[in-house]
């Protein structure tokens, strides 16, 4: 793990890029290992991942498909136990403990028998916070998310983008400080997706929650994040850590700046190489 840390590079950090590193560490993963399969023939999926999310920082994880990003989330969420390494939240080890994070899955996963309003407060309900204490805040955020007038609607009456926004508000309202977003826009069409990215950028810059964001979309990661961790193929480790230099509040237009394009080219190259390595190792595994 120290090897990959040494490889970390700092790319032209802008003065306004924020002082995340000065902020206390919200989440810290150190040397996480996890394998599946039998004891005799283990299949290592996570091979020593270390990373940090500071308070109020937007951190993205990108990596080739099958690099164990979802497994990593399951470790953080406490659904799985790592074989080695520590997960610390606010300095406390939370290996295998559930109920410490807000979560937004790939599919909106709104409950079809609940109104949007009742869906949005589900996390509170599960954490034993009475509904009346949260409804005002919920309504405010729903309005902010363009869901005003849909409080009493059922999920099937909403478009895909609206459903994802409701799922985001649900995660945002979670009483826990850290939000984990698992490829939240991957099921949307390209236009809705870019609309959602701008929306998320706006709303995040207003709230400044600590976010861990998994994506395989390079531009999305560059647009939204303060820090990007690039994961290698299986068994995954941190290949590189990149601090995104663009000042906040950000505009979509940064996507046309030469700096953005250079970073995108670099990341694309890195990802392509990893994808190729993964594929060839898969093939040799079969042979």
């Amino acid at each position: 793990m120290s090897k990959s840390e040494k490889e970390n590079r700092r790319i032209g950090r802008g003065a306004e890029a924020g002082s995340e590193s000065d902020a206390p560490i919200k989440l810290e993963l150190s040397g996480l290992h996890k394998s599946f399969g039998s004891k005799r023939k283990p299949l290592p999926v996570i091979g020593g991942v270390s990373l940090q999310v500071h308070e109020g920082e937007f951190v993205s994880l990108i990596g080739p498909s099958g690099s164990g990003k979802s497994t990593l989330f399951h470790l953080i969420g406490g659904l799985l136990q790592p074989e080695q390494g520590e997960i610390r939240l606010d300095g406390r080890v939370i290996n295998g403990e559930r109920g410490h994070i807000g979560y937004m899955p790939q599919q909106p996963a709104l409950f079809p028998w609940r109104t949007i309003e009742d869906n949005v407060v589900l996390d509170h309900e599960v954490n034993g916070i009475p509904r009346r204490e949260t409804l005002d805040e919920a309504r405010r955020w729903m309005e902010r998310a363009g869901l005003a007038g849909f409080e009493q609607a059922y999920p099937h009456m909403l478009s895909g983008g609206m459903q994802q926004r409701a799922a985001f508000v649900r995660a945002l309202l979670s009483p826990h400080g850290l939000m984990c977003l698992d490829e939240p826009f991957s099921a949307l069409d390209a236009f809705t997706r870019s609309e959602m990215q701008t929306w998320l950028l706006d709303i995040w810059e207003e709230t400044r929650r600590s976010v861990l964001f998994v994506t395989h979309h390079i531009e999305e990661a560059l647009l939204l994040s303060d820090t990007i961790y690039v994961l290698s193929g299986r068994p995954s480790a941190v290949l590189r850590r990149i601090e995104v230099p663009f000042p906040r509040p950000r505009r979509e237009e940064i996507a046309e700046s030469p700096e953005f394009l250079a970073l995108r080219r670099e990341l694309t190259g890195l990802m392509k190489e990893e994808q190729r390595k993964t594929r060839s190792s898969d093939i040799s595994g079969i042979l």
Partner: peptide
């Protein structure tokens, strides 16, 4: 639904 189940587990239900 698996995704809903996964969600409930992730938020610590």
């Amino acid at each position: 639904d698996r995704t809903m189940l996964n969600y409930m587990r992730m938020i610590g239900a």
